[in-house]
Each structure stands twice: as C-alpha cells, then as structure tokens.
C-alpha cells in the first residue's frame, strides 16, 4: 500500500511539473507566450516574444512556403523584440503548425484566410495595439494577397516587405536575367568561371515561365549565386523549425505529394502587381542588392505600383535574399524608424 501511495504522489508531481501551460498574463516588457489559431484542419502556433507593453506588435510572415517562423526568432529580431512585441506565426503545413489530415487544404486563398484570422486574434488579444506586418520572400506574396483583399489593410498601421515575392512570374524572369548578366560579368572578371558558366548555360536555354521544374532549378542556382558573390548567411536550414521532424514532414508534403506539388505550381502564376494600387497603408520595402531569388526588380515593381502615400524602398549593398541576417543592424534601423513614424 505504501508503494501505491508513493507512486500516486510521484505521478501527480510529475504531471504537475511537466503539464503546465503558458497562459496569457497581460502586457509585458519581456513577453514569451504562445497561442494557437485553428482553421480548416490546421492548428497554427503564434509565439509572441518581446516588449508587448509597447502596444506595438510586429507579425512575422515567414518565407518558404513550408519553412517556419522559428528562423526569425534569433538575433535578426533581437532589437525589434527589445522595443516591440514580435509575433512569430507558423503558417499551415510549416514550422510547428500541426493537424491530422490537412494537406489538401493548402492553397494561397486558404493561407490568406488564415492570416486574416491571425490578425483578428492579435487585435483581440492585444487590444489597442498597433500591428505591422513583416513579410519575407513567399510571405511577401501572402501579405499582399491579404492586404489587397476587402478592407484587411485597415487592421494594420503599416507593412514591411523584405525581398517579398508579390509577383512570382516577374521574380522568375528577373532572376534568370540577373543570373545571366552577373554570370557574364563574373566570367569576364575570372571569378568562379566553371560555376558561372554552368549557370549561364542553363539560364540561356531554359525559360523559368515554361515549367515549375525549370523555375525550381533557377531558384536553386539563385541561392548558389549568392554564395559565389560572397554573401554568407549565418543561419542554416536546420534552424527553420524548432523540431527537425516537423521540417521533414512539411518538406515531404510540399515536394513529394500531389497536393503539395499542385500548390507549388499554382504559385508560379501568382501575381499581385496589378492590385498593389489598392494598398494605401505605409509601406517599407527592404531588398538585398544581390538577391538572385527575388531580385531588386521586384522591389522596384512594388514601388511603382503601391498605392501608399508613404512608400520607401531601401537596398542593402552587402545582402542577398536575407538582408535581416546579413545586415541586421541596418535592417532593424529602417524598421524601427518606420514603426516610430507610423505607430
């Protein structure tokens, strides 16, 4: 009987220590809390870190698709977290977002709907807070899709697009052109001749608008090109998700299932350039000068077409597709100045 009592006590204590939950405890200068938004089969975590007592929330819309927001919860947003609350949202079938059978729901309109819910919940949870979007790469496409829909933009004080792919066809054609121009220039200079010749040869004979496979190969060369130009990222692919198993599942779904492939192929024609005029809120566009994946032409396109009274495009001369990693201080300076102006 003594054993039974001891065992029950040990079990109770173990459950008490391991089963606790982080609840929202109000605004804080050093918040670290989580909530979830569940929608159409996907349970998406939103981890809020930093200074929520500022009543300013920056919502990270990560790239990918399929990557995760954990990648941004490092030094890239350290100063932003000191000053503001930063919400790290994992999109459906990305990061630690979970669910049972949901891959068939993966589509851009569904993800835009998810983002609508996330912003609504943020506004409810942090009542009176100013919300800014921080959209990177694929997140740029998702954010523009959200902003041009209905009156969604009225929920926000402004948005920041960092190397955002709001126009995939333009991004693909510009990527090819930039790769070919740079390849020729680097070959003439005698830098990485064999590597650049391979890229030049492929890009000269393949149109990224013709098939998804060609577009993917050119994107792969675009990442290589950054390395050849001496742009070194500090992060690795292993940091994309907190749990590598989640990342395996997400990538498997995207690249090895018909639903994932259909989704990726549908993005190849996604283009919001002709609707950017609808966006009236302040816009800050930050671009790496050596971004071969979503080239500076796409940023220029944003500047031309956005309907915002305030819009600013900043190029970072020592960056590729991830200026927040390679020129962190300058990127954060721009973001802080932007938020302080429009909060």
């Amino acid at each position: 009987m003594r054993y039974v009592h001891t065992s029950i006590s040990v079990l109770f204590l173990a459950f008490l220590f391991t089963g606790c939950k982080k609840e929202f405890t109000g605004l804080s200068s050093n918040a670290n809390e989580i909530f979830w938004v569940t929608n159409k089969g996907a349970d998406m975590p939103v981890r809020v870190m930093g200074n929520t007592s500022s009543k300013i929330i920056i919502l990270i819309i990560h790239g990918g698709p399929g990557d995760g927001s954990y990648d941004y919860a490092n030094y890239e947003t350290k100063r932003l977290r000191d000053k503001y609350g930063v919400a790290f949202w994992d999109q459906r079938n990305a990061g630690a977002a979970s669910g049972t059978n949901n891959i068939d729901k993966l589509s851009l309109p569904q993800m835009i709907n998810d983002l609508e819910l996330v912003v609504k919940v943020l506004k409810l949870r942090y009542q009176g807070a100013d919300v800014f979007l921080y959209a990177h790469s694929f997140g740029g496409l998702l954010a523009t899709g959200y902003l041009v829909k209905d009156s969604n933009q009225n929920q926000l004080n402004g948005w920041i697009e960092i190397d955002g792919a709001h126009n995939y066809p333009l991004s693909n054609t510009s990527s090819r052109k930039m790769l070919m121009d740079t390849a020729q220039s680097e070959i003439n200079k005698g830098n990485n001749i064999l590597q650049w010749q391979k890229i030049l040869s492929y890009c000269s004979s393949h149109d990224p608008l013709s098939t998804y496979e060609i577009s993917s190969q050119i994107e792969s060369y675009a990442h290589d090109a950054e390395n050849y130009m001496g742009i070194e990222r500090k992060n690795s692919i292993l940091t994309l998700a907190e749990d590598p198993s989640d990342q395996l599942v997400n990538y498997y779904n995207l690249f090895y299932t018909s639903s994932g492939n259909d989704f990726l192929q549908s993005l190849e024609s996604a283009n919001y350039s002709d609707q950017l005029y609808k966006i009236k809120i302040p816009s800050l566009l930050l671009w790496g000068q050596f971004d071969f994946t979503v080239p500076p032409d796409v940023g220029e396109d944003g500047m031309t077409n956005l309907g915002s009274a305030y819009k600013k495009l900043v190029f970072f001369p020592h960056s590729g597709h991830h200026p927040m990693e390679t020129e962190t201080d300058l990127v954060e300076d721009e973001i802080i100045a932007f938020i302080e102006t429009f909060k």
Partner: peptide, 15 residues
C-alpha cells in the same frame, strides 16, 4: 493539448 489559448472563428465571424 496545446499550450496557451486556442482560438477559432465561428461561422458568424466571432472569435
């Protein structure tokens, strides 16, 4: 069982 609060929007748009 997820940590923190879980939100859903019902058919009437209420959280």
């Amino acid at each position: 069982v997820y940590d923190g609060k879980v939100y859903e929007i019902d058919q009437y748009g209420n959280i």
